[in-house]
Design a protein around this nucleic acid. Structure first.
Lengths: 323, 323
DNA sequence: TATATTTGCGTGTGCGTACACGGTGTTTTT
DNA sequence: AAAAACACCGTGTACGCACACGCAAATATA
């Protein structure tokens, strides 16, 4: 019986057919609870993420992951963490470790585009289910993804900036990056942002400029950058840096839109310096990532490969912190 | 051993203590999979909702519920539906049936406030877990709730209406109800809506008026109702009715805000007649409702009693239908 | 004191599945 | 033709738990 189901051979084709017929007939479904009980197996999930200390955002992801881990521990799920610092060398080092590590599933945040593609190509031969969170590598459609559609989030940002404004507008796209600039989400958002204005011909009176700063060179912020600027789009979670500068220098009437509910961002949102934040629900992402692997491996269900987190628009008026 | 855990008596206190000590010592956790396997029990969930034919919104709720049912059927979950027409008589009739029905959990949409309170009071003595969806009866905090915070959704609507508008404003609150007017969500939303303007003194130049129509009397819509009106707030899913009327009568420049992604609402959203819709994610509500009962009864976990669905603001530009 | 009743506790079986083992019949090798 | 190898299949045990049964000891009743 189980020899047929598990295709372990040792059975005559004739018998296989006979049993399969009966399985069809009675609509037999294997009881996963009993199966896993008999298997008595631990499921090891590798977690491949940036260090949570680096950013509050990743801390939330971990929170969601741990919540799921606790909940699913009764099904034999065990997590093994592989953190890396926010740079390529550290990323590659961890990648190597994971290649050697034996596990049943992988949760992965492909921050660095090129290197992630490379890593996944190599990881493919292990034939282990992978779920990406935060950023998606869309060409890798054999893998699952939990996170936002970055392009659309940029597009929405465009809409929000143009909100009820008909007059001349000068828009600044403010890029504050770490070492690497090529993180995929980030670029997709900017692409989506521009797309919104391309799709709306009536908005020709909008003018764009871009500024790029490295994380290490925040002190290069200057008043000149904001000359004549009405709106600032920060395509990552660093909107608070712009907000802080504007507040300090008493520049008013500039609309800011950014991402993620970091403490600092919320602070300036409540002060009215930041106008919009798009929330990515990082905790949900983490939870749902683990949930995907659980469904895939423990329950052996086929699940939707792509789970887009809603583009949640947070204004001062609809931010209600979870108590 | 199990006699102690299940407190079935028949054990000397001395032995109980001894075993409990050892349980503590080794951190024993009962294996729910094995437990349920041995129990070999079916979990019956009663579903107490308005007929899904009445509204697309409830259809989505059912979709989510069925999705969950399919997924959890392997854990022995069986659903028993109790639908009622959108009126008190039918509601009470179904309520009676449910009172007599033997089940392990109840999913319930307390549409009619007074009667729901009454029903829940009576149902309490059955000592069966209940999860409410869509509307919350907040004083019944022994029960779980999945849905939005209705007050806050009205508050947000207020914010959206006042968006970037400094001039004089005439706001119409358009109530299209069925037989009963006292559905709780609906009133809470209006309360929240007014609250926004109360909290913001600078918005004194906003004027309000209200119109109430019964579902049966839509033909009473008239041009006069919209004289001088700049914005319309529809505190339920019937925004499309206002939109249709305005479009037919070529009244332009009126901002409409409503709830729920019904087909008709989406149609007018895409046409630009409706400006905002607040999505309640009915499918998620249904799914999460069942999910709560599953966690509570099958896994015997303690879960968050209240799960607020995000206030998802849908504009023409960020509506991306699930393909 | 003998018998009936209660209380405490060990054991056995079953839930539905996985897997190892051992037995039978068939084919290949020497 | 005997020995070895192989393909096929039934059975037993284990997974962790729930529950019924039945035995022994403690207590109550006659």
């Amino acid at each position: 019986m189980d020899r047929i189901i598990h295709k372990r051979g040792q059975v005559a084709q004739e018998t296989v057919d006979k049993v399969n017929a009966i399985i069809e007939e009675f609509g037999y479904k294997r009881n996963i609870m009993a199966s896993n009980l008999a298997l008595n197996k631990k499921f090891h999930f590798a977690i491949f993420l940036p260090k949570s200390e680096t950013l509050e955002y990743w801390k939330s992801q971990i929170d969601g992951i741990e919540k799921a881990a606790l909940e699913f521990s009764k099904f034999g799920i065990v997590l093994d963490y592989f953190f890396y610092d926010y740079n390529l060398a550290s990323f590659k080092e961890s990648a190597k470790k994971i290649m050697q590590f034996e596990c049943d599933g992988l949760l992965f945040a492909p921050i660095f585009y090129e290197e992630s593609v490379q890593f996944l190509d190599e990881y493919k031969k292990k034939n282990i289910p992978v779920v990406m969170i935060d950023s998606n590598i869309s060409e890798k459609n054999e893998y699952a993804y939990v996170g936002q559609n970055a392009f659309q989030s940029g597009y929405l940002a465009g809409r929000l900036i143009s909100f009820a404004v008909k007059n001349e507008r000068q828009i600044l796209i403010f890029k504050i990056t770490r070492e690497i600039e090529s993180t995929s989400v980030y670029l997709q958002r900017i692409k989506g942002f521009y797309s919104y204005f391309k799709d709306h011909d009536e908005l020709t009176n909008f003018k764009f400029s871009e500024v790029t700063l490295k994380d290490s060179g925040i002190d290069q912020l200057s008043m000149e950058m904001f000359l004549g600027v009405n709106s600032v789009f920060v395509p990552n979670s660093r909107a608070y840096i712009v907000a802080e500068f504007l507040e300090k220098n008493k520049i008013k009437g500039v609309r800011i839109i950014g991402f993620d509910l970091l403490k600092e961002n919320i602070e300036y949102l409540n002060k009215g310096v930041i106008d919009f934040l798009i929330n990515q629900r990082p905790e949900d992402q983490g939870y749902l990532g683990i949930n995907y692997l659980y469904k895939k491996l423990v329950l052996q269900e086929e699940t939707e490969k792509i789970h887009y987190i809603p583009l949640e628009i947070i204004l001062k008026e609809n931010y209600f912190p979870a108590k």
